[in-house]
């Protein structure tokens, strides 16, 4: 059984004159000690999906309309807020894209790292501060003893993200959700942060859910991948399945829109034409219909179901229907 299993999650937000269907069917899971990457463009619902797991969706306007999220088999979504609070911050922790705005500017970094230990673990202030210093050392911040007394503005972006990680792992969570943790950082710092996450994962046997739009980061970090588009998970599988046996036209499109650097390979980028659909007025059929080079008649009005392409590899696309006549060489078929 997977450590954390999310199935058929639907989230909508009430807005003036209707609702935005931000997540319209997200299923993914992550195992102990492994990394799941959720990849997709802005507005595809990746952040909202994990925020719902963390109970960070403000209700109203947000509402989880369907689906479940189970940690070791126990539902952690919505209603049972009491349970949720126990789990969130201790068993599941989250780090955010912009470390500068996610930390409290009026508290020292040390006090912020110590806070979850005091709240959830009943540490005394002194114990918690001592642990905070150890955690900063674990995240390789030089001179941790004096750094814990400093404020966020005195830290660089990379060090802030290290502090966020220190705070997140303070209660030794079994799942760490990282929402674009390196997007705001330079590539050399990104590399350091990703290495740090891998090291911590090895020592704590922690599961990581990594949200990113960068396929390079996915290739480097993930065991499994969920590709999201227009609120839905359109393809799921092991990282090699997603990269070398892509089964959804959107995954194929994303890959060919990004430059790769294999020595000697001359390549031409193929942009995906058009823009993602407006989820205020979600399309009746497949969300990718208007941009898909292989779109068929059925795709316009009938939302595709999820097909098993292979063991543990799924794609939400009519091309995989057994009666589909169109043969597309770019799309993997076993």
């Amino acid at each position: 059984m997977a450590l954390l299993e999310v199935s058929d999650l639907h989230v909508e937000f009430a807005v003036h004159g209707g609702s935005v269907q931000a997540v319209r069917g997200a299923s993914f899971s992550v195992n102990e000690g492994e990394t799941l990457a959720i990849v997709g463009e802005s507005g595809c619902g990746k952040t909202v999906s994990v925020q719902s797991i963390m109970g960070l969706i403000q209700t109203p306007p947000g509402r989880i309309t369907r689906g479940s999220a189970k940690l070791r088999g126990h539902d952690i979504l919505g209603g049972q807020a009491a349970d949720g609070r126990e789990i969130r911050g201790t068993d599941i922790a989250m780090i955010f894209q912009d470390p500068m705005s996610s930390l409290n500017p009026t508290m020292t970094v040390g006090a912020q790292i110590a806070e979850p230990l005091i709240v959830h673990r009943g540490y005394s202030h002194r114990q918690a501060m001592r642990r905070a210093q150890e955690l900063l050392e674990m995240t390789l911040i030089p001179d941790a003893a004096s750094r814990i007394k400093e404020y966020p503005f005195e830290f660089s972006g990379g060090m802030l993200q290290r502090s966020m990680i220190a705070m997140a792992i303070a209660c030794e969570p079994s799942v760490l959700i990282a929402d674009e943790p390196t997007t705001a950082l330079d590539v050399t710092i990104q590399s350091q942060i990703l290495d740090l996450m891998v090291d911590l994962q090895r020592t704590n046997n922690m599961a990581i859910i990594l949200i990113t739009h960068d396929l390079g980061v996915v290739a480097r970090m993930a065991n499994d991948v969920a590709v999201m588009y227009a609120g839905e998970v359109v393809e799921r599988g092991a990282v090699d399945d997603i990269f070398y046996r892509s089964a959804h036209p959107y995954t194929v499109g994303l890959k060919s829109a990004m430059p790769t650097n294999r020595r000697g390979a001359v390549q031409k980028l193929t942009p995906i034409q058009g823009t993602p659909p407006d989820l205020f007025d979600a399309p009746a059929g497949c969300g990718y219909y208007t941009r898909c080079p292989y779109a068929m008649e059925v795709c316009e009005a009938t939302p595709p179901i999820v097909f098993d392409v292979d063991r543990e590899h799924q794609s939400r696309c009519w091309l995989h229907h057994k009666d589909c006549l169109q043969q597309v060489t770019q799309i993997y078929r076993p």
Partner: peptide, 10 residues
């Protein structure tokens, strides 16, 4: 430090 969108290469 530049990650490549290619798991084998990574």
């Amino acid at each position: 430090s530049n990650p490549e969108p290619d798991p084998n290469q990574e």
